[in-house]
Design a protein around this nucleic acid. Structure first.
Lengths: 148, 148
DNA sequence: AAAAATTAGATTGCATACAATTTATTTACT
DNA sequence: AGTAAATAAATTGTATGCAATCTAATTTTT
């Protein structure tokens, strides 16, 4: 029978957090060569993904979907604006809300992005079932964090 | 039978990458209140974890274990040095290598860190089996990335 | 041994992240 | 209506994270 050693809990190899942190970092890195061609970053890409799925959303809504706050989004949206992919407009019924919309150029970009997910999927060496289970577990972690 | 729609691949909800990115970000955020008490950040914490497990390692070795490069580690190690948790010394047999060692203060900090992993584990709402499977899958993703 | 190639860290520049604060606006309350 | 509370973004400050480049030291080649 193994003795319990408090040191063990502090081993990198015993922490779920570390592979979560590292794989999150590494997978976004895999996107870089593909996103470089579109001249956008990973975070800009997921913001565009939100818009491609549903146009005309507030900064707040983008932030909720992506777990990002205005400190990250404000400058990032300004970059997308400068690149001509989005436009901003205050909501008439509530001037505090800023509605983000895709420009034609931003919409066009979607076509070029189609190629990306399959290429990344190829790099992730999991079976269909494993990928599905990983997906389920990650969302369970994320959902579990919400009620605190 | 469902038709295949290319738009579907670009939905946030269909991408494994996004929950990986988001959960990695969110779980490190959960550490903040605990690490604030020790006056260290998450990245500083995992560097110390490497050292707590094996003292006197090179910057390169730390980087390999944590998937971080010198651009991240150099300034971060300088902060840990300033706080008095580590010391630096060039390897006599190879002056390019910088060996990082724990100070007594850095070693002492480990005792205060014992409490942290169990507290985080409590926040992750997974069963033991799920946590284990998630762990396995994440390492499989990380390992799969290595051979490219 | 001298030149070329490699390697370990440091540096620079750009892009997040996020806590905390501020500002403008809107809603709730008396 | 007038003030207080709440809300959405913007701003500020600190800490990564990484690509690209640079520098010094070491190894490999010729």
């Amino acid at each position: 029978m193994k003795e319990f050693n408090p040191d063990d809990t502090l081993k990198l190899s015993n922490q779920l957090c570390f592979p979560l942190y590292a794989s999150g970092k590494e997978i976004t890195r895999k996107y870089k060569p593909f996103l470089d061609k579109l001249d956008i970053t990973y975070t800009q890409y997921i913001v565009l993904m939100v818009l491609w799925e549903k146009d005309h959303v507030s900064v707040k809504e983008i932030g909720e979907k992506l777990y990002l706050d205005s400190g990250t989004l404000t400058p990032l949206l300004n970059k997308l604006l400068k690149k001509g992919y989005i436009s901003k407009k205050a909501l008439p019924s509530d001037n505090r809300e800023l509605i983000i919309s895709l420009t034609n150029k931003g919409l066009e970009l979607k076509k070029e992005a189609y190629e990306i997910p399959p290429q990344i999927a190829k790099k992730v060496k999991l079976t269909q079932e494993e990928a599905k289970e990983l997906y389920r577990l990650l969302y369970k972690v994320l959902e579990g964090f919400k009620d605190e």
